[in-house]
Design a protein around this nucleic acid. Structure first.
Length: 287
DNA sequence: ATCCGATGTCAAT
DNA sequence: TTGACCTCGGATC
């Protein structure tokens, strides 16, 4: 499930469960054993998320950060029994008094020094979920690219945290032809993309999953339970709005989904009520 | 029992 | 643009 919302949710949970608590760190699978030994006996002092990257801050002079990226397959399991046996290949394990973290299959799990952190920050764009985000830089960067908007939305150097589900759903919400070159978008549309990204990621962080569309009729068992029931186009065969068939094609190495009937414009022409999305997904102060 | 795709990224062509 | 890599689960035989 790893788009930005997943990572920010993990950050909140880990801060709550592990920071300021006695935590042991090890590597049942072995590939993080040396690093775990370096931090053994230290305290976790903070947690941070930036786009799809997660950082555990430790009280260590040389290696203050563990840098985690889940990649496509990585998962975090948090057994309520901290002593639970590892299931599968656990690269890094944290055991606190209330919970454990079993990190499985991450693309990246490494120690980082201050230089490493600075380098990473430098090549990432703006994360709508961060208080220090600079919307201006994100919008300007977006409008400078010639690539199709659906490709640019995956570019972590522009907006950090969006992935293949959000890019498809964002283009749909705007009624945008996903192949529209980003540099043809108006500033107003770029602003809208930024606002919607923030609203959707915020809702995703709160709920733990990507919710874009109102869940569909709860009339029969199972309704609203499939992921596609909360989305407009991603992995769907029919458009929820017009009923037409959803197109799919590789773009930027990933499968892009879009509705060829609802998404015909190179300017935002939302096929659904965006104010409801923006309002419903961002209650004041909730996160 | 085996295959294949997946909410991701990078290095090598 | 392609392949490699991290791992699991659902579809398929």
């Amino acid at each position: 499930m790893p788009e930005g919302h997943t990572i920010h949710r993990l950050a909140r949970q880990h801060a709550q469960w592990f920071v300021g608590e006695p935590v042991t760190i090890d590597s049942p699978q072995g590939r993080f054993a040396r690093e775990a030994a370096v931090l053994s006996g230290r305290a976790m002092v903070g947690v941070e998320a930036l786009g799809k990257h997660l950082f555990h801050r430790w009280d260590h002079p040389r290696w203050p950060l563990v840098h985690i990226h889940l990649g496509l397959f990585g998962r975090a399991w948090h057994p309520t029994d901290p002593a639970a046996e590892p299931r599968g290949t656990v690269r890094m394990r944290l055991i606190g008094p209330r919970r454990a973290l079993h990190l499985i299959g991450p693309t990246c799990c490494e120690l980082l020094d201050r230089g490493g952190w600075a380098a990473l920050r430098g090549r990432l764009g703006e994360d709508p979920l961060r208080a220090d985000a600079d919307p201006e830089r994100a919008c300007v960067g977006l409008m400078r690219r010639r690539r199709p908007i659906a490709a640019v939305l995956l570019d972590q150097a522009v907006i950090a945290g969006l992935g293949n589900v959000y890019r498809a759903e964002l283009c749909f919400l705007l009624g945008l032809d996903p192949f529209t070159p980003a540099d043809r978008l108006s500033r107003g549309d770029a602003d809208l993309i930024w606002s919607l990204s923030g609203a959707l990621l915020t809702a995703g962080t709160r709920t733990g999953r990507i919710v874009v569309a109102p869940p569909r009729g709860a009339t029969h068992p199972g309704a609203g339970r499939r992921p596609g029931d909360r989305l407009y186009v991603y992995k769907r065969s029919r458009c929820r709005v017009c009923g037409g068939s959803i197109s799919r094609a590789p773009l930027e190495g990933r499968t892009l989904y879009w509705c060829p009937a609802c998404q015909v414009s190179s300017t935002a022409v939302p096929p659904v009520d965006l104010s409801a999305v923006l309002r419903g997904l961002r209650p004041s102060g909730a996160l």
